[in-house]
């Protein structure tokens, strides 16, 4: 076993670094080099209608609200969703397409993150609207990468209601295609349905700390 820590106390951090690396090298010196074969499915392609249908179905499975509409109907759908939810104070990330909100009218106060909204302010907001970077049909997942129209991670986390718009060309069939499109240097948030927990008797229940309501608008063109 590892020697007790006492004597090493006060040594520079490099002491443990070198010790751990040396122990690893000794441990695996005689081990074989196993080949990595990737025989699983990658590079899947699907027609756009199938992608949209599958994605919508899988997001609904998580008990999120899903709308599938052509671009022309987005402003109306967004306005109606916000009205139904009773959203008065809406967090709006920078560079969100202006058209998406053109029908919301004066009843919705837009909270811009410039200067950055304090956490308590975000907590007082009724909801947040955002776009996304990638969506995965098979798993019903939306990936945010803090890019234009998405904002920093806290914006889509603290408010209790998240309205997310997904353009059809952002939907990929499966996880491998999503990984290939994403930039790991950006902070990513993969969202599959509203906040949930399986901690009570191993059953999924929606709604703990993240947004308890997720509403998704899929733009078909």
């Amino acid at each position: 076993m590892t020697p007790p820590a006492g004597p090493s106390a006060g040594l520079p951090a490099t002491g443990s670094r070198e010790r751990i690396l040396a122990r690893i090298r000794a441990a695996v010196a005689a081990a074989p080099e196993p080949p990595v074969r990737r025989a699983y499915r990658t590079g899947a392609r699907m027609p756009r209608e199938t992608l949209i249908e599958l994605f919508a179905e899988r997001v609904r499975d998580y008990r999120a609200i899903v709308h599938t509409v052509p671009g022309a109907e987005v402003p109306g759908t967004v306005a109606a969703a916000l009205a139904r939810r009773g959203v008065r104070r809406l967090v709006v990330p920078a560079h969100l397409p202006e058209a998406w909100l053109e029908r919301t009218g004066g009843s919705v106060e837009r909270l811009a993150d410039d200067p950055p909204l304090p956490a308590a302010e975000l907590d007082r907001a009724d909801g947040v609207i955002s776009g996304c970077a990638v969506a995965i049909a098979e798993t019903g997942t939306i990936v945010l990468d803090a890019g234009p129209g998405q904002g920093r991670r806290a914006l889509t986390l603290v408010p209790d209601y998240h309205l997310c718009l997904v353009r059809a060309e952002q939907i990929v069939p499966r996880v491998p295609e999503a990984i290939a499109r994403l930039d790991p240097r950006r902070p990513l948030t993969w969202i599959s349905g509203p906040s949930a927990t399986s901690d009570i008797e191993l059953n999924r229940i929606e709604g703990v700390h993240g947004p308890r309501t997720l509403e998704v608008v899929i733009i078909t063109d």
Partner: peptide
């Protein structure tokens, strides 16, 4: 199919 949140 996927857990609700994954952060990287």
């Amino acid at each position: 199919r996927m857990n609700p949140y994954t952060s990287t």
